[in-house]
Design a protein around this nucleic acid. Structure first.
Lengths: 248, 248
DNA sequence: CGTTTCGTTGATATTAATCAACGAGCGTGG
DNA sequence: CCACGCTCGTTGATTAATATCAACGAAACG
């Protein structure tokens, strides 16, 4: 397993803010309505401003590591983050990819259950967990929203369990493309061209396959005219056929 | 795929209560402190009594089916329930096993995301979802408890994702035995003898394997003196070795 | 411009699935 | 009460899917 990139220092101030000078506050945040902040009223948003820390990081930055004390929760404003766990011998399983609007820390764990690492350039809102916990106690609608997110996370996990437990390589890749497309549709206009910021190795570690199998499967789907490989992404040619494949 | 056993009729009154005449109310329920009810105070428990319906069912009873409207949530008092999803061609993936103290409906979905089927004789508390939702809105500590359960469910799912994505047959079986043992320890005294009410096929469908591979792997672990197969269960001989295996 | 990383493809190995047979236990009905 | 038929679990033989090992070209990078 290769090195994991720079660990984020809590006191690593230099340059941090420089990356995102255009975000002044939550009220003007374009990700607001997609994120957990959608549960906040105008006034609450103002108080939230004092708690939230806008940060941005280059690719490969480790936001937090599995096993570390969870001092912050995060809301993703931009970019892609891979969430993974490592086995002692280096085998990696990617639990999920977090994109714009996603919330990291739904479970409000004391300790991080997985490592989070920037796939590309990312912007996040970092929120002290303790303060957030207080807000949750005070604002039932925020708690409700968080629980709603937890429910969605449970669904996604169960989908992934079915995929990993019972689907073959072709079905897994098809399902991945469609589900990632679906998630992108929430934050942009739905398109048949799916940008894939993560590497083939990331996709493999997400789908429980090897990089070679992912590559071969994508080639096969392309040979069968279901998709076309484009720079940094994949275009879907036959959505219906791909869906039928993905569902098993 | 074989038939799925009798579907639970909502109006199936005859005999239902007869199975569990000894449960009069929530206050005397021996499962209370293990379940979501642990979040309820004495008075709340009394009101809960009017909402909760104690029911018991024989093995193979379908509690609810994937895709059906979720009119109830459930708390398990006794027995084992398998939770699974089916692919169109009959492939089955068991999402989890629910045992005494477990809550079905953490996500509070409108529609059931999986089918729940009694493995053996079960007793459950059936709670109308609408009424429960009202209670959640009124009692923040209940909401908090529910969210805590959701967090645990997310963890378990992620463990299972790592298992299915990156572990081999031997590691999967070892991990299953240990995790099931751990869960049983919550409701009984911890023992090296693990009762396994579910079939080999159930274990296979939970671990993303075939029944033959599960059987062979268990035989292998027994040959290596890590476990002994006993009637309706398995006894662990070498916990440490098994743990090392399970963790990868 | 060399060097590294990434993705692809081919050849081979390995794991687990599939196909098949069999014995034990269990319930049912003669 | 025993015999029959099921279901279940186990084991063996073979196949199929994916992993592993290896080579290569293209793009990215210093």
């Amino acid at each position: 397993m290769k090195s994991m990139g720079p660990i984020l220092q809590d006191n690593a101030k230099p340059g941090e803010r420089d990356h995102a000078p255009h975000i002044a506050n939550c009220s003007t945040c374009t990700t607001r309505h997609l994120s957990i902040c959608a549960a906040l009223g105008h006034e609450e948003l103002l108080t939230f401003d004092h708690v939230v820390q806008h940060r941005s990081f280059p690719a490969k930055t480790v936001l937090f590591e599995q096993g570390a004390k969870a001092d912050f929760v995060f809301s993703v404003s931009e970019g892609t983050i891979r969430l993974f766990r490592l086995l002692p011998d280096g085998r990696r399983q990617i639990i999920g990819f977090a994109i714009k609007g996603d919330f990291l820390g739904v479970a409000m764990d004391e300790v991080h259950e997985y490592t989070a690492e920037a796939v590309d350039y990312i912007r996040v809102c970092r929120i002290p967990r303790a303060g957030f916990a207080v807000m949750l106690d005070e604002k039932p609608h925020l708690m409700k929203k968080l629980h709603q997110l937890a429910g969605r996370e449970i669904h996604n996990s169960q989908d992934q369990i079915v995929l990993l437990g019972r689907k073959n390589a072709e079905e897994r890749v098809a399902a991945f493309l469609l589900s990632f497309r679906e998630r992108l549709a929430r934050i942009a206009t739905k398109s048949v061209t799916i940008p894939l910021p993560m590497s083939r190795q990331d996709i493999a570690d997400y789908l429980g396959l090897t990089i070679e199998t992912v590559s071969r499967t994508i080639s096969k789907l392309a040979r069968e005219k279901l998709i076309v490989v484009v720079p940094d992404g994949i275009r879907i040619l036959d959505v219906d056929h791909l869906m039928a494949l993905a569902d098993g």
